[in-house]
Design a protein around this nucleic acid. Structure first.
Length: 122
RNA sequence: AAAGUCGGCUGGACAGUCGCUGCCGCUUCGGCGGGGGAGGAAAGUCCGGGCUCCGCAGGACAGAGUGCCAGGUAAUGCCUGGGGGACGUGAGUCUACGGAAAGUGCCGCAGAAAACAAACCGCCGAUGGCUGGCCUCUUCGGAUGUCAGAUCAGGUAAGGGUGAAAAGGUGCGGUAAGAGCGCACCGCACGGGUGGUAACACGCCGUGGCAGGGUAAACCCCACUCGGAGCAAGACCAAAUAGGAACCCUGAGGCGUGGUCCGCGCUGGGUUCGGGUAGGUUGCUUGAGCCUUGGAGUAAUUCAGGGCCUAGAGGAAUGACUGUUCACGACAGAACCCGGCUUACAGGCCGGCUUUCGCU
């Protein structure tokens, strides 16, 4: 049975975690509307965090929705990924995408991230 | 039935699988099970409170807000009822609704004139003058009277015309023509009376021929209200590092220089305490609460009895997928909590009332 849960230790929890990813960014992956930054993990787990500003996604409903789609996809795929810390940034084009497009893109995104890490190891 | 108007409700449903989260129970501390988990606007943050801290807010000035009356409320700029005004056949809707007789500013175009009024066209020309006819008188120059004409002085504001607005309207009298000039009725102002808690109303009485443009969401004047900051408020626990205080120990110590000693240079260790950063706990959901029955009140609301506990996260949960189904699903996500207002909103449902038409 694959581990598809999403407990607390798979999330970036405080500003130190976030600062770490920003300062130590080693891999980047684009996804329409979003930019993923990744850095070597500070723990033995693969972790994820979000920076969605009101400036880029105006409605709170849409911000929540995108996070949930990301989180759900992440909990299904995180077992494929090495222990890195991932940060998802929303950019202005996030307004142009929608739920279906995003969830479609995501399985490709994880694969792409895995390749980047494989070709440029820690 | 159609059109309209006012008010209220609702905001896909069901099942399965995989997740998240706080609560309860069990636990071999790995987890397992159970039952909770966004809104009518959670939104804008525009008002009013509770709560917390600063503080103790007395006066003056400034500033902001409110502005018909009564009631409701913890409170309000909100709500309910009432009054005035405007709109609509009507149900109803709208109303920032104190003061223009304290002062200042502004008022396009048109028009003769836009404010201690004035007089373009028009009307009149009684009165004073001018010209002519006639009567009477005559000192033969004229004088008096009367009639007519022109309209010089002048009178007038009814009519025309301009405008949103030009010193109230209609009628009769009056006059040279006119005019509140006089009178009647309507309107207006003031005083009184009656009704109403009051705003205010009156087919009531009296007095006065009669207020003198608009604009105060322009300045302003008047009356009333307002201490400041906000849950990142505030309270508690508290590493590591640096620094501080007190006490104790050492000062023949330790480190450096040096081959070693002397010498020279620099100062240490321990315990406790308070402040306090990261971080954690709390504030954090039982409340001006919801449902229901009955009473008071036109209503807002309130009183009494019974029942219920209904999100509480924290880089921030409430989601994803699959199937069935229907009217194919709008606006939109809690962040200390309430009461309002405002704005957004696919559909659907219910009720009151009005107008028109049809039937009995």
């Amino acid at each position: 049975m694959l581990d598809q849960t999403y407990p607390r230790n798979l999330r970036l929890l405080n500003s130190r975690d976030f600062r770490h990813v920003f300062d130590q960014t080693q891999w980047k992956v684009f996804c329409p509307g979003f930019l993923l930054l990744a850095a070597p993990g500070r723990t033995t787990e693969t972790r994820i965090g979000f920076v969605f500003s009101k400036k880029n996604i105006r409605l709170a409903v849409r911000r929540n929705r995108f996070k949930r789609i990301f989180r759900d996809s992440f909990r299904r795929h995180h077992h494929q990924l090495p222990p890195v810390d991932i940060l998802v940034l929303a950019i202005k084009e996030a307004n142009l995408t929608n739920d279906q497009k995003l969830s479609k893109n995501l399985s490709r995104v994880w694969k792409q991230l895995n390749q980047r890490i494989g070709s440029d190891p820690i």
